[in-house]
Amino acid sequence: MKLINIGFGNLVSSDKIVAVVAPDSAPVKRIVQDAKQNSLLIDATCGRKCKSVIVAENNHVILSAISCEAIQNRTDESEENKDEH
C-alpha cells in the first residue's frame, strides 16, 4: 500500500484512487454535492481553494487544494520508488 500526499500532510492510499478530476465542471460539482449529502465527502483543503477532486473506490470523495497534475506526479514518483525496491 502506497500513500500519496494530497497536501497539508493528508495522505490517501494510491490503491484506492479511482479518479482525480478538476472541480470545475457541473457533473463533478454534482458528485461533490451528492457525496456531501451522503456523508461521503472528505475535505482535505484546510480552508484553501479546491483544485482537485479525488474519487475513491468506496464512493468517498476527497477534496484537495493541490492540482491534479501535482497528484499525478506524486503518484508517478511513488510508483517509481516502488519499482526500485
Rank of each mutant, 00 (worst) to 15 (best):
2 K>C: 13
2 K>L: 13
3 L>S: 05
4 I>A: 01
4 I>V: 15
4 I>F: 06
4 I>C: 06
5 N>W: 10
6 I>T: 00
8 F>M: 15
8 F>Q: 11
11 L>G: 00
11 L>T: 04
11 L>Y: 14
13 S>A: 15
13 S>L: 11
14 S>P: 11
16 K>W: 08
16 K>V: 08
16 K>D: 03
16 K>F: 14
18 V>N: 05
19 A>T: 12
21 V>W: 04
21 V>C: 09
21 V>R: 03
22 A>N: 15
22 A>M: 13
22 A>H: 12
23 P>I: 12
23 P>E: 03
23 P>W: 07
24 D>I: 06
24 D>W: 10
26 A>R: 15
26 A>Q: 13
27 P>W: 15
28 V>L: 14
29 K>R: 13
30 R>E: 12
31 I>Q: 02
32 V>W: 07
32 V>Q: 03
32 V>I: 14
32 V>C: 10
34 D>C: 15
34 D>V: 10
34 D>S: 06
35 A>S: 02
35 A>F: 02
36 K>V: 03
36 K>S: 06
36 K>G: 00
37 Q>C: 12
39 S>E: 01
39 S>I: 10
39 S>D: 07
40 L>I: 09
42 I>T: 01
42 I>G: 01
43 D>K: 08
49 K>H: 11
49 K>L: 14
50 C>E: 02
51 K>G: 04
51 K>Y: 07
53 V>I: 14
55 V>Q: 07
55 V>S: 06
55 V>C: 07
56 A>H: 14
57 E>W: 13
57 E>P: 05
57 E>G: 09
57 E>L: 15
58 N>T: 08
58 N>E: 04
59 N>E: 07
59 N>R: 06
59 N>G: 08
60 H>Y: 11
63 L>W: 02
63 L>I: 01
66 I>G: 00
67 S>T: 09
67 S>E: 03
67 S>V: 02
68 C>E: 03
68 C>A: 12
68 C>F: 03
71 I>E: 00
71 I>P: 00
72 Q>Y: 06
72 Q>I: 13
72 Q>G: 05
73 N>G: 08
73 N>S: 09
74 R>N: 05
74 R>S: 07
74 R>M: 03
75 T>A: 12
77 E>G: 07
77 E>C: 07
79 E>L: 13
80 E>K: 06
80 E>S: 02
81 N>F: 03
81 N>L: 09
83 D>F: 13
84 E>M: 08
84 E>W: 05
85 H>P: 01
